[in-house]
Structure formats: structure tokens, C-alpha cells
């Protein structure tokens, strides 16, 4: 499914993206000095991207409403990531209440050829922009979530792990004039 959609979208050299992203993170570190601020800024930028990206996602993927939050998790991991970044993620640790899951990224184009200096390890969440994208995109489909990086391979941990917690389902008001 994700592969089909990925084949449909127009593509660009991922090295350009990786290097540009890296240059931006470096710039942010220079501008802010405080690493926590950099994490926040990256998340905010991601949010702005997510709220726009969802539209293309819905248009191109032809995916309807998800039955529950767990289906949403699978769609993000298998279709969302595949469609935009060309990689898939794995969903683990779903809680019984179906309000929380973890995304494991085995492959992440953002961190190709990246190495973090010692002093930033476990402090900087280099790919934090992804958390913002997920939060922004889900908010547009009435799900308010909290998204955090739990582990990052750049900080010598075994995998990249994003935790997504559903906080609230926003009321689904259909604007006047829409069916």
C-alpha cells in the first residue's frame, strides 16, 4: 500500500534533504545555544509541516477514516512514512487502552551521514521534526497527540523510538456547507 503511493508521488534527491536538514539544525544550535530550545523549535517546524502534509496524504493515499487509534498507528508507520520518506516504521508496545504506541524507525533518511558530537548526545533530538509532523498531521484529523523521542540511534541507542500518546479526540464538527 505505502509502496504504491510512494511510486505515485514526485520524488527528489534525499541527499539534498538530509544535508539541508543538517545545515538547518547546525544553524539552530548556533542561534539558540540552549539545546532544549532547539528541540522545541524543530518540533514546531514539524507541526507547521504536518498540518499541510496531511492534505496531500489524504488526497494521494485514498485512506478513509481509521477504526481506532491502533489502525492510525499502522497507517502512519506503513503508509505515512513510506509515502514521504520512502521508509517504513514498526509499531510496538501498544497499550491495552489503545491510547499509546511506539514507532520504531530502523531507517531514517534524516540521519544519513550524521554523527552527533558527545556533548549533544541524549540532549539533542536531532529528528525531533518528525514528532512535530505527526502531531500536526493528526491534529488535522481530530486527534490531539503528544509525541516524544524516547531513544535515538545518534545517541548510541539501539533504535530510534518515538512515543505517541493520544490525549484527546477533538470534536468532529463538519463545517457548514460540507458533506
Amino acid at each position: 500500500m505505502g509502496t504504491d503511493v510512494f511510486n505515485k508521488v514526485e520524488k527528489i534527491n534525499s541527499e539534498l534533504f538530509t544535508l539541508t536538514y543538517g545545515a538547518l539544525v547546525t544553524q539552530l544550535i548556533k542561534d539558540y545555544e540552549d539545546i532544549e530550545q532547539v528541540n522545541i523549535k524543530l518540533e514546531q517546524m514539524g507541526y507547521n509541516i504536518g498540518i499541510r502534509l496531511i492534505e496531500e496524504f489524504l488526497a494521494k493515499s485514498n485512506i478513509g477514516r481509521c477504526a481506532d487509534f491502533m489502525e492510525t498507528a499502522e497507517v502512519i508507520a506503513k503508509v505515512g512514512f513510506k509515502m514521504f520518506l520512502g521508509v517504513t516504521a514498526t509499531v510496538i508496545d501498544q497499550d491495552p487502552d489503545k491510547r499509546e504506541f511506539h514507532l520504531i524507525l530502523d531507517d531514517n533518511p534524516l540521519i544519513d551521514f550524521v554523527e552527533l558530537p558527545e556533548q549533544y548526545k541524549h540532549k539533542l533530538y536531532y529528528s525531533n521534526i518528525l514528532c512535530g509532523v505527526i502531531r500536526g498531521a493528526l491534529e488535522m484529523v481530530q486527534m490531539k497527540v503528544k509525541c516524544t523521542f524516547m531513544k535515538c540511534t545518534l545517541s548510541d541507542e539501539t533504535s530510534s523510538d518515538i512515543k505517541v500518546v493520544l490525549e484527546e479526540v477533538l470534536s468532529d464538527m463538519i463545517p457548514v456547507g460540507y458533506d
Binding site: E10, I49, L53
Partner: peptide, 15 residues
Amino acid sequence: SIAISCFEFFYIEMV
């Protein structure tokens, strides 16, 4: 490769 829209939205944010 990655989706063009992904890069473009990112580019707008960066600028």
C-alpha cells in the same frame, strides 16, 4: 529518494 512535497514544505519552514 524522498517525496518532493516533504522537501518543499520543509524548505518553506526553513526559509
